[in-house]
Amino acid sequence: MRISFGDKVFQSFNYVVLILIACSSLFPLVHLIALSISSSAAIETGKVNLWPVGFNLDTFNLLVKGTPLVKSFLNSVEITVVGVALCMASTILAAYPLSRPQFYARRFFTLMMIFTMIFTGGVIPTFLVIQGLGLVNSYWALWLSSLVSTYNMLILRTYFENIPSEIDDAARMDGCGETRLLLRIILPVSMPVLATLTLFYGVAFWNVFMSMLIYINDTDKHNLTVLVQQMIQSQSVLQQSMMVQPDEQVHVVEEGIKAAGVLVMIAPMLLVYPFLQRYFVKGVMLGSVKG
């Protein structure tokens, strides 16, 4: 088919816009990487754009030695790993019964869950419940208060419902109970969607911020998100003090440190992201079918 001049213009415009959008995601990241491994002098004079100048790892060194970075990194890992395990188990336990046509009151239970998506008790009443249960200052407050995401549960339920019923009929013939059916047959064929939900829950727990501020007062238990945020904030406090008394050395190190701190938060995500990308695209598409 002949391509008209107008369509050629459109195509070029299209590519240019998409390249610009892609760069808007890529450049800030590259800029942060460059900042974190450049020398203080180069950062101070604004020589660092997308390429590191005067390579060194002082910032990471200082982060590890001068801040509770390692501790909060481990806290973040603990919160994420346990949280994902609990949430995945609960979401499966919610979605599987609701996907079975013979389950009592499945419509009622489903509506009861969906209602919580559009109407909630809000922050304070939830806090009072958590406080009443004595969970303040414990990670259980974070885990239990977000045990099942209704949205994720609906994605999983839809997936289970679309598994051909011949499979479980056959299994039942062989005398397979519900638990074994779930563990041996349903879950293994649901790996793509389970991977998607693992990513969603993992990211949510890795990034958890507001709940951390609300429920965890003990600074030893703070996660990476709160630590990095405090570093960014204290820097703005520092800036104000520098208006009065300029101290270049401290200021420059802070810029690089801030970038390094942000990178430590992004790094684990960047590591798993490429492997899970194809899954989450499928997962979101699935969720959109029966939102």
Partner: peptide
């Protein structure tokens, strides 16, 4: 799961 919804979603609504 039902307990989770009752305790952490519906109890706060009562709150």
């Amino acid at each position: 799961v039902l307990l989770f919804y009752l305790i952490f979603k519906y109890l706060p609504m009562g709150g």
